[in-house]
């Protein structure tokens, strides 16, 4: 009993044929300007809506790649610049600046060569 389908047909809007046709006509009349606009040509807003998502996604990927590359380049440059700036400020010879930028301690041979070079 409880599981039997109820007869709700009096609420069916299509049962009243005239009323239903009136509703369809009402909707179609209200839709006419937009349908005319679409039939007349491409709607620029619609085109934007179609392309907005892929364009935004592509822009986001490009931005991420560009930022990544910038950060990486900047980091390498910063280390090199930093080494050069310290060497210059201390008035060290070019050889010493090279050891600094390489981040290594000079060997005995390096020191001898550097001293010979200064002579």
């Amino acid at each position: 009993m409880e599981n039997e389908r109820l007869d709700l047909s009096p609420l069916d809007p299509t049962a009243d044929r005239l009323g239903y046709e009136r509703l369809v006509r009402r909707i179609m009349d209200a839709a006419a300007p937009e349908l005319r606009r679409r039939a007349a040509g491409v709607n620029p807003l619609a085109m934007l809506a179609v392309w907005a998502r892929p364009t935004l996604a592509a822009a986001a990927v490009i931005a991420l790649v560009a930022i990544g590359a910038l950060v990486a380049t900047d980091r390498v440059g910063a280390v090199e610049d930093e080494a050069g700036t310290v060497a210059e400020a201390l008035g060290l010879p070019a050889e010493a600046a090279g050891w600094l930028s390489d981040g290594r301690a000079p060997t005995q041979d390096d020191l001898i060569l550097a001293m010979e070079g200064r002579r």
Binding site: V24, A31, L35, A39
Partner: peptide, 19 residues
Amino acid sequence: RARRGDAAAFEGLVRRYAR
């Protein structure tokens, strides 16, 4: 078709889903 402004196509959708 409705995207291109076809009124008959849009009316088809209206009749299919109005109920």
